[in-house]
Design a binder for these strands. Structure first.
Length: 272
DNA sequence: ACTATTTCCTGGATGC
DNA sequence: TGCATCCAGGAAATAG
């Protein structure tokens, strides 16, 4: 399940491999298509464009497109990919067997293909002039702005962390892991957190995201990066997916509760 | 304006 | 072995 660290890892890998390549042709799968923009618009926007850069914004992959010199563009264009739960962007040989759940294939001038595969089809593709994430970047938000996000919110802090309009990029794993580091229970009301608790959460969230990026993300079910490599951060999880297992600090069994339909894991003694 | 709940989707795990 | 059921969750849609 790609969240910020996994998307960051994928975007960095893709940037290394396809920057400078040119999209020669685009194939988009049959309906129901996982698209936010019409298929014809995606195809028209991508074809014959050069990949200027690949980067991450929230949980979105942003592919910056540049026009060929003989066809200067009127406006900038970006290809936006959201991987949903199970989406993958793979660079592969045209000879490689086509996965059953392939929804898009971009033929590159280098002879390789860029494929979008997504069994569960929660992923989305779009083209846009200039992408703007719905919320703030967790890695760069200031403490003051972070505090401001939660002011007056009665929702559980776990739900607030998952709200992409507040913070873009935090998903279920890193919300739980950040709350553990801040020693806060997931059901705490966002507005009830003290200045000191918010400071610890701001710090814990940045730390856990940065450490996860260093380890290439968390591979839980089927996440792999652009080269098919698994991440290693799942080995460092302190609460996520560890229901009943001992807390790494106090040995108390980790609890799991459901908040807003999402599994939430916490240590009943370390987190208040 | 918020908040909570439901829905989408399929592979893998579980149970009888 | 086979078949039904449940579960995972990001985000949009819907309801309150």
């Amino acid at each position: 399940m790609p969240e910020l660290p996994e998307v960051e890892t994928i975007a960095r890998g893709l940037a290394k491999r396809v920057t400078g390549d040119v999209i020669e042709s685009v194939w988009l799968g049959s309906k129901p298509e996982p698209l936010k923009s019409p298929a014809a618009e995606i195809e028209a926007t991508l074809v014959s464009k050069k990949i200027a850069d690949v980067r991450r914004s929230g949980k979105h992959i942003v592919v910056d497109l540049a026009s060929p010199i003989n066809k200067p563009a009127l406006a900038s264009a970006q290809w936006i990919v959201h991987l949903g739960m199970t989406g993958r962007l793979l660079v592969c040989s045209p000879d490689a067997e086509l996965d059953k759940h392939t929804h898009a294939v971009l033929r590159l001038a280098s002879g390789r293909e860029l494929r979008f595969v997504d069994p569960r089809r929660f992923g989305r593709l779009a083209v846009i002039e200039k992408f703007a994430p719905p919320g703030s970047e967790p890695l760069s938000i200031s403490l003051a702005d972070f505090v401001g996000l939660f002011r007056g919110r009665k929702t559980p802090i776990k739900s607030a962390l998952l709200n992409q309009k507040l913070l873009s990029g935090v998903g279920n794993i890193y919300a739980d892991e950040a709350l553990y580091r801040a020693k806060l229970r997931p059901r705490r009301r966002a507005a009830s957190l003290s200045a000191e608790e918010l400071r610890l959460l701001h710090k814990g969230l940045k730390q856990v995201l940065q450490e996860a990026i260093r380890l290439g993300g968390s591979s839980i079910s089927d996440y792999v990066d652009s080269e098919g490599q698994e991440g290693f951060f799942q080995l460092k999880h302190r609460v996520y997916g560890r229901e009943g297992e001992p807390c790494r600090k106090c040995r108390a069994p980790i609890k799991r509760v459901v908040i807003a339909g999402r599994s939430s894991h916490y240590c009943p003694t370390c987190q208040k």
